[in-house]
Amino acid sequence: MRPGHALVLFSGGQDSTTCLAWALTHFAHVETIGFDYGQRHDVEMRVRLQVLQSLRAQFPHWAERLGEDHVVDLAVLGQISDTALTRDTAIAMTAAGLPNTFVPGRNLLFFQLAAAVGYRRGLHTLVGGMCETDFSGYPDCRDDTIKALQVAVSLGMGQRFTFETPLMWLDKAQTWALAQQLGGDALVATIVAQSHTCYEGVRDVLHAWGYGCGTCPACELRRVGYERWRAAETGKPIAGA
């Protein structure tokens, strides 16, 4: 068990749910924070509460460590962003070489606001699901960005913060494997049936890997990772999948 308490940036998706399980395994007290920024797939704001409820019900040893959930209204980010995650726009590549699902400054704001909440509540470890292995080139998901931001936030708040990114060097198949390692079949089943990743917000089709449209970049990453992980598991059955 690591010293101190943790605050997890929790959207209710596969990555943040795995990160929450990781934090609950490593810290004695864990709280969560979500951001409502006018995202097109706002279903995640409802789903994240279902995931929290499922974790509390299925993992009593985690439930006693899982504290308050915080939600920050970040509507201004959606108002100033012209992206496929904040507008009803087709997903495509931009002239900058990034998909138009990139919301400029999103993770920077998330960490800064999480640090403000953590400062008030004595939560000096912030946990995020950023990943530089399976990502779309988002500059605010890179390890160098997170490390630089950790230094800036710590200096600016006069309080040392640690930013943990347990998925940074894992691909999606390895992220599924980590979930299995942390919480067994029950956690994998919760991620499949409860979490949400699809950029289109589709919740009417449950695939083996979870709900989603099956074609957006987020669904594609999740599906391919799941299939690669299952292949490596040599067909081991997973409850609820």
Score class of each variant (00 low, 15 high):
residue 117 V to M: 13
residue 43 V to W: 04
residue 85 L to P: 02
residue 189 A to N: 14
residue 174 Q to V: 06
residue 29 H to T: 13
residue 73 D to N: 13
residue 226 Y to F: 15
residue 3 P to Q: 12
residue 57 A to N: 12
residue 23 A to H: 14
residue 156 G to L: 12
residue 135 F to H: 15
residue 172 K to W: 07
residue 200 E to C: 10
residue 21 A to G: 04
residue 171 D to K: 00
residue 104 P to A: 09
residue 193 A to H: 14
residue 155 L to E: 14
residue 75 A to N: 05
residue 202 V to R: 12
residue 33 I to F: 03
residue 2 R to P: 01
residue 54 S to T: 10
residue 43 V to L: 10
residue 212 G to P: 02
residue 186 A to C: 12
residue 31 E to V: 00
residue 162 T to Y: 14
residue 91 I to E: 10
residue 32 T to Y: 05
residue 15 D to G: 10
residue 232 A to K: 08
residue 130 M to D: 01
residue 9 L to Q: 06
residue 183 G to K: 02
residue 75 A to Y: 08
residue 136 S to W: 11
residue 209 W to G: 01
residue 129 G to M: 11
residue 57 A to V: 02
residue 48 R to D: 00
residue 239 A to I: 13
residue 62 W to G: 07
residue 13 G to N: 10
residue 56 R to F: 03
residue 57 A to P: 03
residue 185 D to W: 01
residue 141 C to T: 05
residue 85 L to E: 04
residue 228 R to C: 03
residue 89 T to M: 13
residue 230 R to M: 07
residue 198 C to A: 00
residue 77 L to E: 08
residue 183 G to Q: 03
residue 191 I to H: 05
residue 7 L to R: 06
residue 61 H to V: 08
residue 230 R to W: 02
residue 71 V to T: 13
residue 70 H to G: 01
residue 125 T to A: 06
residue 159 Q to S: 08
residue 141 C to F: 01
residue 13 G to F: 03
residue 178 L to V: 09
residue 169 W to H: 15
residue 96 A to R: 02
residue 59 F to W: 02
residue 185 D to S: 01
residue 117 V to N: 10
residue 105 G to W: 01
residue 237 P to S: 05
residue 190 T to C: 05
residue 79 Q to R: 14
residue 166 P to L: 03
residue 105 G to M: 08
residue 97 G to Y: 04
residue 208 A to R: 09
residue 167 L to K: 05
residue 194 Q to L: 03
residue 78 G to S: 09
residue 165 T to K: 06
residue 76 V to M: 11
residue 173 A to F: 09
residue 89 T to L: 14
residue 141 C to A: 07
residue 118 G to Q: 14
residue 82 D to S: 12
residue 73 D to K: 09
residue 233 E to S: 15
residue 187 L to G: 01
residue 79 Q to P: 00
residue 144 D to M: 06
residue 228 R to S: 09
residue 90 A to D: 15
